[in-house]
């Protein structure tokens, strides 16, 4: 968990032109693992995460002056990373639709088994396959709530969706995943 004092120290460095690079290094060191894990869960491919995380960080660096401290720094970072991941998935799906009609769950299963950053067992892999079958934005909502345990108010700031819609989306996702896991267990 990142505390307020650490966030404040990073922001102070980022605001100072002479310390900006040092502050950015601290930002990546502190928040990088959080964003990397969020993107791994979203994209289910460490090779894609390398690209999307760098795109995210470039946007963060270029738009540091737009962060007005109206939300937590982590919320702002999650928002940029989530938008980058959703845009990446949209372009990837457009490309793949032209060349393959394979079930996304099967693709995710195959990709993850070969991914050096996935070390899960059979049940964890089944959950990842069930997640791959969710619409991208619903998957983002589910992941932020289920794994990161973020409050709906914060997920609302990240996704730009109302809290009511988020709750409905999360519960629908739980039902879908539950039925997929039940089918796997039988």
């Amino acid at each position: 968990m990142i505390n307020a004092a650490e966030e404040s120290a990073i922001l102070t460095q980022l605001r100072d032109e002479r310390q900006r690079e040092q502050g950015f290094g601290a930002l990546v060191r502190v928040y990088g693992p959080l964003l990397h894990r969020h993107l791994l869960r979203m994209l289910q491919s460490s090779a894609d995460v390398d690209d999307v995380l760098q795109n995210t960080l470039i946007k963060v660096y270029r738009h540091l002056d737009r962060f007005r401290e109206e939300s937590k720094l982590s919320t702002w970072l999650y928002r940029i990373a989530t938008n980058e991941a959703l845009a990446w998935l949209r372009s990837q799906q457009r490309r793949e639709r032209r060349i393959s009609s394979e079930d996304p769950a099967l693709t995710a299963g195959r990709t993850l088994r070969a991914d050096p950053f996935f070390d899960g067992d059979a049940a964890q892999l089944e959950l990842q396959k069930a997640l791959a079958a969710l619409p991208d934005k619903q998957r983002a909502v589910f992941l932020l709530r289920y794994y990161d345990e973020l409050p709906y108010a914060e997920i609302s700031q990240i996704t730009g969706t109302s809290e009511g819609a988020l709750k409905a989306s999360y519960h629908l996702a739980v039902k879908k995943i539950e039925s997929k896991l039940k089918a796997y267990a039988q």
Binding site: P33, L57, Q124, E178, L181
Partner: peptide, 25 residues
């Protein structure tokens, strides 16, 4: 099943600190 899986974690591993230092640079 979902409660038990959350306890277990997501199955992903994090890269070493050096990855993030290089990424920042």
């Amino acid at each position: 099943a979902l409660r038990a899986l959350r306890e277990k974690g997501d199955g992903f591993v994090s890269p070493p600190d050096a990855y993030f230092a290089q990424l920042a640079q």
